[in-house]
């Protein structure tokens, strides 16, 4: 068992290295529209466009041959030096750290909320199928996932940010209910103002995730809702609640853990580009996209490497969870 874990950890490192190498390769193979645009600018200014293209590439270290860039980067990485981000004009670690805080602020609450709501609806729904509340619950859960995020975000901003400020309902001004239209970065993390301006992004993200939580918890609960051991428990007089928690949940935990652990890890390093672009939150999603479109190789590599590593470790933890929770599975002989 221990051997198994050790092997998987070693694999995590190898896979990370592979992913970074692949990313590097793809990135370096991609053409460079920025350089072309810089050249065009210069040509229109009566300057030698080739010079400008060179200058552009040089200042980003992109004019060096590919393998040199790669080796430089890898050697730095071995020393845990993640390099410098040209597009953010700060060291990569600083850029990521800054961005991560912003992303975490809306991601963590969203996941928590969506898990709580999703699991509740899912489990309840499993034991009360085909009832009106079941349908309602499904509708609520699926609502968020069925509308395009960006549409929802823009509409929310318009309604809550703009219209509420001007409108009044039955003579009462709705101004007090209105929220900021975009994210202001100078509020402290744990202040009331910050909490208020996070409400909309969290709503958009949470509603989108509720459905998958609900579905899987419901599916798993359903698997066992009519199983013999449940019937036995009910026959013995156990309440629905006890049946749920003590019997169904335990068994359902194995596959549920699949989703749960992935969620937790996803929270550690994730950012939704759409939400960040619309609400103007300088988080990881934006950072990733900017890094790619500006061919900021150091940043792209770092931003790829971290989630890869976390994901693989996450998978390992998941697999270990199976073993713990389902005594029939054993990795001893694998």
């Amino acid at each position: 068992m221990r051997w198994y874990v050790a092997r998987r950890l070693a694999w995590a490192l190898v896979a990370t290295w592979l992913a970074v190498t692949l990313t590097f390769g793809v990135l370096l193979a991609a053409p460079n529209p920025g350089a072309d645009a810089a050249a065009a600018q210069c040509a229109s200014q009566d300057r030698d466009p080739e010079q400008c293209r060179q200058q552009y590439l040089e200042s980003r270290g992109l004019d060096r041959p590919a393998h040199v860039q790669y080796i430089d980067y890898m050697t730095d990485l071995a020393a845990l030096d993640f390099g410098y981000s040209e597009s953010q004009e700060e060291p990569v670690t600083a850029a990521i750290a800054d961005a991560w805080i912003y992303s975490a602020q809306y991601f963590v609450p969203s996941i928590i909320i969506s898990v709580l709501i999703g699991y509740s609806i899912g489990l309840y729904s499993a034991l009360n199928r085909y009832t009106l509340t079941d349908y309602l619950g499904s509708f609520v859960a699926y609502f968020g996932i069925s509308i395009p995020n960006f549409w929802f975000a823009i509409v929310l901003i318009l309604v809550v940010g703009v219209y509420f400020r001007e409108a009044s309902l039955l003579g009462v001004s709705l101004d007090a209910l209105s929220l900021r239209t975009y994210y202001e970065t100078s509020y402290g993390v744990f202040t009331v103002e910050n909490a208020k301006q996070l409400i909309m992004p969290v709503i958009v993200l949470a509603t989108a995730s509720v459905a998958s939580q609900m579905r899987y918890s419901r599916a798993q609960a359903l698997e066992y809702a009519n199983a013999d051991f449940v019937k036995t428990a009910r026959a013995k007089g156990a309440s629905t609640w006890r049946v749920l928690v003590a019997h169904v949940l335990r068994v359902a935990l194995v596959p549920l853990s699949t989703i749960l652990i992935v969620d937790i890890l996803a929270v550690l390093f994730a950012g939704s580009f759409i939400i960040e672009a619309i609400f103007q939150i300088p988080g990881l999603g934006r950072l990733q996209l900017e890094a790619i479109t500006q061919k900021d190789t150091d940043l792209v590599a770092a931003v790829t490497l971290i989630p890869v590593f976390l994901a693989i470790v996450g998978n390992l933890i998941q697999d270990l969870a199976y073993v713990l929770l389902d005594p029939r599975i054993d990795y001893g002989d694998r």
Partner: peptide, 19 residues
């Protein structure tokens, strides 16, 4: 100077008075 990635957000912001 506040940069906006999404044009419609900038318009909403000026309408609401946030910028």
């Amino acid at each position: 100077y506040q940069v906006f990635d999404e044009q419609s957000t900038a318009y909403s912001a000026v309408r609401a008075g946030d910028i």
